[in-house]
Design a protein around this nucleic acid. Structure first.
Lengths: 224, 224
DNA sequence: CCAAAAGTGTTGACTGTACACCCATGT
DNA sequence: ACATGGGTGTACAGTCAACACTTTTGG
């Protein structure tokens, strides 16, 4: 069944802000544009919706194509349709953001022409379209959401040490946190549980390994 | 300039969750549908985007048509496009929510067929389409946003008493607040300023009148 | 003088923050 | 033995929550 044709219809794209942590920096996936408009400028991965496809499905398709990922934390960010945002005409973009550990991303296998690359969010060039604004907005949302949910799970492997978790928060928020206070708070929230196992291999005391109590999004009592 | 036609295009609507306070209850504007689908069910005011119109423009147009309001707090809520949400086919809805004092709404003058009416959000019937879910989502957002911004200004007249402000929070959050703690907190945040004027007329001690320090949205240090 | 809402402080509990040293391991 | 990150507790300050009586007015 399709919509009646007696109403104005418009072109809709989906863009995805894929965030990950690499080298203790928060990074976003960008693709250098080959064609006009904004040729040679970096842009978010995205594309037009296919027939019968929802925006979320399209976002997942794009993530698969451009970053080779399929299991990912994905959330709708905002719909951008300000006049003039795309020089080709009125194009609405339903934007999603995604979080995933760096090691689960395989850009090599991606079926795309220009190779997508990760860029440190604190040193971004000017992006194509309104994508600079979109990235800022995504950062704001992620930072905020990490204050009252467990979404950090989506940036970490199943088992991790307290230091890794701490570093994740520090990298996303861009500030240092106190190790002792952090541990007290996180444990009191029951966001994570010790596995009883331990990580050896550094030339230091072995670190206890933890798991998230739930690996789907949960709202917690606000912390930090 | 228009978008190239070689991509699939879809029908886009805008729906608006207009919230206000009436009789110390939080209410939402609904319109009983005359036609199928969902004839006789209540639905949010909304409609298809016109050619060249942005979703926000459309939301403002609908508010003007259905509620006779033009100055209003308006914020994009979410874009709904889940498969099957509209039996007529794949229709995407960019939803906004709006806040305004009851006395600034003039439904009588509205150019519409079915008269829109306000419904207590705590006693809603089943709504058409996915509108029940949309209203819940809007309520969650508004309640949340009142915790860390000054958006309460959009539900109050320019000058108001502390009791009115307190009642606004109580109605939106659906719980009682302590008068003394409320006043201490609100004043310490510098969200509002006394005008020096006073409201007489009740058969009780006159109340001081206040104004919001800013009548556009501001993020405050979190409160309550 | 009575009814109604306005106005006003203190205390105890809890939470957040600052801070420094010893531990277990690999090399 | 030493370098590295892991692991742990206390004390002070600030914030939150609970609580009740007096004031001012209109009728």
């Amino acid at each position: 069944m399709t919509a009646k044709q007696n109403f104005y219809q418009i072109s809709v794209t989906t863009d995805v802000v894929l965030l990950t942590i690499e080298d203790d920096k928060l990074k976003v996936l960008l693709i250098e544009r080959a064609q006009k408009p904004f040729a040679k400028k970096c842009a978010l991965p995205g594309g037009f919706l296919h027939k019968g496809e929802t925006s979320e499905k399209a976002a997942r398709r794009i993530l698969k194509q451009k970053a080779g990922v399929s299991n990912v934390y994905l959330e709708q960010l905002y719909t951008f349709d300000k006049k003039g945002r795309d020089p080709r005409g009125p194009i609405m973009s339903v934007v999603y953001y995604a979080l995933i550990p760096r090691r689960e991303i395989m850009i090599e296998g991606a079926a795309t022409i220009q190779t997508p690359t990760f860029h440190d969010v604190s040193r971004l060039p000017k992006l194509a379209f309104d994508h600079s604004k979109i990235v800022s907005y995504a950062l704001k949302r992620v930072r905020y959401k990490m204050e009252y949910t467990n979404i950090a799970y989506s940036l970490l492997p199943a088992e991790f040490t307290l230091s890794q978790l701490l570093r994740t928060y520090e990298v996303v928020w861009g500030r240092k946190l106190d190790k002792r206070n952090f541990q007290k708070k996180i444990l009191s929230l029951a966001m994570i549980r010790p596995t009883g196992r331990v990580l050896r291999g550094g030339r230091q005391r072995p670190a206890r390994l933890f798991r998230f109590s739930s690996r789907s999004i949960r709202e917690l009592e606000r912390f930090f």
